[in-house]
Design a protein around this nucleic acid. Structure first.
Length: 443
RNA sequence: GACCCCAUUGUGUAGCGGUUAGCACCCCACCCUUUCACGGUGGUAGCACGGGUUCGAAUCCCGUUGGGGUCGCCA
């Protein structure tokens, strides 16, 4: 282990912001790149907010993204690491000690029942690993509160004390904290300690171009978890916001990012969140990952929709996922496309019926039904041959049969390869659905 | 308002003194094709502006403009 120690210090607000997730990712990448330590610290000093469920959300989000931490609270309970506690709510004695020290040294004083930090009136330079040297003229800076009237310590104090106590070497955080850094540097100095190095990463902006906030669509990581996104894809996309491989390559395994990640090549400019690109990237992952890799996710997506997939054979589910994953971009879409395979009653789309189950379509279904009834081999290649032969016999294109057949068996006019779909459904169910459609739409 | 950060097509980025300014998403056209995707080919679109420095500037400096952030007894 190197001496690099970084941390992700979220406040349990009940959701994990994509910006926060990206901050966690960059910290994690740096730790893994340097062979350092990634610490998770929960900044739950604001007791007004709930914590139990909110902390769970953070655990789940990080776990989903595959960001494991070397020190911090464990989801199952307990802790790992010897520089804890890792909940700020359990560190009160430490803050009191720091406060005492500042008071004793006359670096802080009481005022109106609160304790204020004596901000040095001078120029302070932040040597930021990303932004470079940033000078702040603090000669007119006001003293600020570090302990409230009710005795509770304030963010600026606890944040710095914790980073010091936990021996954090690099603070990698959002650029919205850059302006706070002179305060933090001053506190560390007043405590007689060496401050960590700072690296302020650009913010993630919403569609409109302002800081992505809780209210924005797509701001919460849970939206992607629930929308059927693959964590690998989300993680990969997040890597691209403010950082790049510089190789004209944007889809890459996380190991590659770990190998190449450097703080000094992170951008200084904010990045707008592009939902379209993330969607595209999810699609590429959907296609490139093996069925085995997709399957666990697919089971979750399918179960969440309420399909009784438990009653199906593992191999059957696998076949369906393999068939569909090539054509869809999200789990949500995958579920829709998989619906006909897990739901016996076909739900027909109105437009599809109007277009393809008209008299001509129904007639085509009759011919097809006669033909397929004879089929001994229901393999997709055999089916394709039958369709073509049938079309030839009637001097028409295979489309004449393909479209009505797709609507009759799946209820939809778009979907995966029809021949393969029919094979997976099996002869019995296909014939049944053809008959059913003929009866229903005959008149 | 003060202070700070930033500035390459609509978006994300490559570029780090000499390039026909590259790549990806998006959009458009064509090809492939059982639908939809995928894939392939091609296309539209960019160095915010003004001064310098230099033989030469997207690249360095200054200013302007624009965008963002911070200015809590929130974190």
């Amino acid at each position: 282990m190197s001496s690099v120690r970084v941390r992700f210090a979220p406040s349990p607000t009940g959701y994990l912001h994509v910006g926060g997730a990206r901050t966690a990712l960059f910290n994690w990448l740096y730790a893994r790149h340097m062979g350092g330590t990634f610490v998770l610290r929960i900044e739950d000093t604001d007791s007004a907010r709930n914590t139990a469920d909110a902390v769970r959300v953070i655990f789940d989000g990080l776990h989903w993204l595959g960001l494991d931490w070397d020190e911090g609270p464990l989801p199952a309970g307990g802790v790992r690491g010897d520089r804890g506690p890792y909940f700020q709510s359990e560190r009160r004695a430490i803050y009191d000690r720091a406060l005492r020290r500042l008071l004793d040294r006359d670096q802080a004083y009481e005022s109106d029942g609160a304790i204020r930090f004596r901000m040095p009136r001078k120029k302070i330079v932040v040597e930021d690993l990303i932004c470079g040297e940033v000078g702040f003229d603090c000669t007119l800076e006001q003293d600020f509160v570090i302990q409230r009237k009710d005795g509770s310590p304030v963010f600026h104090l606890v944040n710095v004390v914790d980073d010091l106590e936990m021996r954090i070497s690099h603070v990698i955080r959002g650029e919205d904290h850059l302006s706070n850094t002179p305060k933090h540097l001053a506190i560390a100095a007043a405590l007689g300690e060496t401050a960590p190095r700072y690296a302020h990463i650009p913010l993630i902006l919403n569609r409109t171009g302002s800081k992505m906030s809780k209210r924005d669509v797509g701001a919460s990581l849970s939206e992607y978890q629930e929308g059927g996104y693959l964590p690998q894809a989300v993680r990969n996309y997040l890597c691209l916001l403010g950082w790049s491989l510089r190789e004209n390559r944007e889809v890459f395994p996380i190991e590659t990012a770990i190998g190449k990640f450097e703080l000094n090549q992170i951008h200084g400019s904010n990045a707008r969140f592009d939902a379209d690109k993330l969607l595209w990237m999810n699609g590429t992952y959907m296609r490139s990952l093996s069925v085995e890799e997709i399957l666990p996710h697919a089971r979750i997506w399918l179960e969440r929709t309420g399909f009784p997939i438990a009653k199906w054979e593992q191999d059957y589910i696998k076949e369906v996922v393999l068939l569909v994953k090539e054509k869809v971009k999200t789990g949500k879409e995958l579920v829709e496309w998989a619906r006909p395979f897990f739901q016996e009653e076909v739900s027909f789309e109105e437009g599809a019926v109007n277009r393809f189950l008209n008299p001509a379509g129904v007639q085509a279904l009759r011919e097809l039904l006669d033909d397929l009834s004879e089929a001994a081999d229901f393999a997709s290649s055999a089916l394709e041959a039958r369709f073509r032969k049938l079309a030839q016999a009637h001097e028409t294109s295979v489309r004449t049969y393909v479209h009505p057949a797709r609507v009759a068996t799946t209820g939809r006019e778009v979907g995966p390869s029809l021949y393969h779909s029919l094979t997976i459904l099996g002869k019995e169910r296909v014939l049944h659905r053809l008959r059913r459609a003929i009866e229903t739409f005959a008149s």
